[in-house]
Nucleic acid binder design. Structure first.
Lengths: 191, 191
DNA sequence: CTATTAATATTACTTGGTAATAATTTAAGT
DNA sequence: ACTTAAATTATTACCAAGTAATATTAATAG
């Protein structure tokens, strides 16, 4: 039968996928070694499986990452910055619009509060790349459509490149959420 | 003076750094265009500034990212897994140890709860790469040294590759935190 | 007006590929 | 045992985005 040959191939391709899952940064040459096949075979397999080359894979991962940081960090600050003392404190305002609330309840979707606080926390830190290490939020009161959320962030402590930042958000003076973020600063050179 | 030449150079190099900060995925050619200088000049500048080539930069970012996912995902689940029905629900237990609490108050540092819940949420999803899109946690009761935190996660909804997962954590039957995570599943092929 | 530095050009080489084609195994079916 | 078709491997020409080294051409400070 033709099966056993196909099976051999399938097994190898499965192994290939598996290897890449464990370590997506393998070159075709390394893969060939691992699968004890030739480089062209690996390439054919990748082609059949629709797996792109190392550099494209790497690039996509990196872009996604960078995009993620940016969208939650410097690039797209959620809310409008009112005050900013880098390394110390900052204030931003977020106006709740209709696409941000649950249509039934008119309550602001939680992650907007999270994002506002988080992006403000990150904005306080002046570094090439800023990561949120951990975040803990406490939602106190629901926020509604047309509310204006004022987020107040303050660096509470710093150990090396790790910053602890507290962010409390208020609507008309009433505290609606309180959050604490651990933010890690990285310089481009370190990357 | 030699200054004006040096100054010209310095300005260009500053601009280079700035450009890379905005978009680290620029080739030397693109940089040359942006700085209206030649490619060799850009290379010399990079050399002087100790900035590595595009592909190395990309790779490092990607590796860091991948490492991060892994450490917060499959790799290092915070807490011990008790039950797991992939795509549906799971339970993990975290024993609070001395290095996890604030020494003054003996209260568990919030990000452990966050990490336990988050990593459990991620563990429910069976994909090559799982990202936490957004997370909102509500801390209800402080958790103390030697407590055993039981986190209970449940997939509440799924839209495409976006999963909503609810995680509630209890200590001796008392709810200590409640969290909701939006988790995004990505297959290797898509990367 | 020349010595010096900056800037640019040029060349040979490297990695990790794509794409296409040709040659060679290998196991299957008869 | 022999053929045949798929699977595998080899080979070749090419590309992008570099490194590294050297040569050449401004530009300008003294």
């Amino acid at each position: 039968m033709v099966l056993s040959r196909n099976q051999h191939k399938r097994e190898r391709q499965q192994l290939l996928v598996q290897q890449l899952q464990e370590n997506p940064f393998l070159t075709d040459e390394e893969l060939a070694e691992l699968l004890s096949a030739s480089v062209p075979t690996v390439r054919l397999d990748r082609l059949e499986l629709g797996i792109s080359e190392l550099r494209a894979r790497t690039k996509d991962v990196a872009e996604q990452y960078y995009g993620q940081i940016r969208s939650l960090a410097t690039g797209e600050l959620i809310g409008d910055l009112l005050e900013l003392e880098i390394g110390k404190r900052g204030i931003s305002v977020l106006e709740v619009k209709k696409d941000m609330v649950f249509s039934k309840t008119q309550i602001l979707r939680g992650h907007y509060l999270f994002a506002q606080a988080n992006s403000l926390a990150v904005a306080l830190i002046n570094a090439d790349v800023v990561l949120t290490g951990s975040a803990y939020m406490r939602y106190l009161t629901p926020v509604y459509l047309k509310d204006k959320v004022v987020a107040n962030a303050q660096v509470t402590s710093q150990r090396g490149s790790n910053f602890m930042i507290r962010v409390d958000s208020r609507v008309g003076g009433v505290e609606v959420s309180r959050g604490r973020f651990t933010v890690v600063a990285k310089e481009m050179r370190e990357l």
